[in-house]
Structure formats: structure tokens, C-alpha cells
Simulated scan of single mutants.
Amino acid sequence: MPVPTCPCGQDLLYDACCGRLHRGEATATTAEELMRSRYAAFVMHDAAYLRKTWSLTTRPARIDFTPGQKWTGLEIVTTTGGSPFHTEGTVEFRAHYTRNGRPGVQQENSTFTREAGQWVYVEAL
């Protein structure tokens, strides 16, 4: 069953937003777009997309999802670089969640680069 609105926080339907990236119909044009699509992939437990968009230099052997955790919202704090004309960029964000009924937030400044022309997540600063 399709998700009506995109969990990434954009005011778009999932199929027209991150869904097209998750299905491989498009690739992210900016580091922020990739960050949003990766957040949506965490929401939907799409490990294949997360692996595909993780740098070969830092990709873990497997991706585990935290039991009892539900992602509830994404805030982009700031970005540097990461445009269609850059090869590197950072995205600072706050990802809100509940875990076993308790609210929490993960704040991170993530680095992104291009590998084979595609934006990929590298690591948290």
C-alpha cells in the first residue's frame, strides 16, 4: 500500500518524491535530496536503498533497524555545498523518533560525496 505523503517532510506525495528514488526511477540531484530520501528509507525500513546510497568506503556489512523505534519527523538545519554543481556537501539535520513510546531526536551533520556521479552518504561529522 503506497504512503500518501512523503515521510521526508516535503509537501509531496511519496510516489512523486522519495518513492521515485527508492524505486530507482530517479537519483538525487542534491545532497539534501539524498538525505531526505535516506530518512524516508529508514522510515520504511528500505535497507537495499540505504546500502545503495552509502559510500563504498564507509558502508556497513549490514543495516539493522532499531526495534520499537518509529521515525516521526525530519528537520533540515543547514546545508553546505551539495548542489547539482558540487562534488561534496554536508547536511545537518534533526530526525525525531519515538522508541518504546518515548520521544527522542538524533541530530547529525552528515557528509556526502559523489561516487560514479551519484550522491552517496559518507559519514556523520
Rank of each mutant, 00 (worst) to 15 (best):
residue 35 M to C: 09
residue 22 H to V: 11
residue 71 W to I: 01
residue 21 L to S: 09
residue 72 T to V: 10
residue 74 L to Q: 03
residue 31 A to I: 07
residue 122 V to A: 04
residue 19 G to N: 10
residue 37 S to A: 15
residue 102 R to C: 04
residue 31 A to L: 09
residue 79 T to E: 11
residue 124 A to Q: 06
residue 12 L to W: 12
residue 22 H to T: 12
residue 24 G to S: 06
residue 62 R to T: 07
residue 114 R to D: 02
residue 80 T to E: 14
residue 49 Y to I: 10
residue 1 M to L: 09
residue 45 H to R: 15
residue 78 T to F: 13
residue 26 A to F: 12
residue 29 T to Q: 15
residue 55 S to Y: 08
residue 101 G to I: 02
residue 38 R to I: 05
residue 83 S to T: 15
residue 47 A to L: 04
residue 47 A to M: 04
residue 119 W to M: 02
residue 21 L to W: 08
residue 52 K to Y: 09
residue 20 R to V: 14
residue 75 E to T: 15
residue 95 A to Y: 02
residue 18 C to D: 10
residue 67 P to V: 09
residue 56 L to M: 10
residue 59 R to P: 04
residue 41 A to V: 08
residue 10 Q to K: 13
residue 6 C to E: 06
residue 3 V to Y: 02
residue 113 T to L: 11
residue 123 E to D: 14
residue 89 G to Y: 09
residue 106 Q to C: 03
residue 98 T to M: 03
residue 123 E to Y: 04
residue 27 T to F: 13
residue 103 P to C: 00
residue 92 E to Q: 15
residue 121 Y to I: 08
residue 118 Q to D: 13
residue 31 A to G: 12
residue 31 A to F: 05
residue 82 G to P: 03
residue 23 R to H: 14
residue 31 A to K: 05
residue 112 F to D: 01
residue 38 R to N: 09
residue 36 R to K: 08
residue 33 E to D: 12
residue 40 A to W: 02
residue 42 F to K: 02
residue 5 T to P: 10
residue 2 P to T: 10
residue 83 S to H: 06
residue 114 R to K: 15
residue 10 Q to T: 14
residue 15 D to L: 12
residue 114 R to M: 02
residue 70 K to M: 09
residue 11 D to Y: 00
residue 75 E to H: 14
residue 34 L to E: 06
residue 105 V to K: 03
residue 100 N to S: 08
residue 50 L to Q: 09
residue 57 T to E: 15
residue 9 G to C: 11
residue 118 Q to T: 11
residue 109 N to E: 00
residue 118 Q to F: 06
residue 102 R to Y: 04
residue 27 T to W: 09
residue 56 L to N: 10
residue 41 A to N: 04
residue 57 T to S: 14
residue 2 P to E: 13
residue 94 R to D: 08
residue 33 E to F: 04
residue 35 M to W: 01
residue 35 M to T: 04
residue 67 P to I: 05
residue 124 A to R: 12
residue 15 D to Q: 13
residue 57 T to I: 01
residue 104 G to M: 04
residue 22 H to F: 10
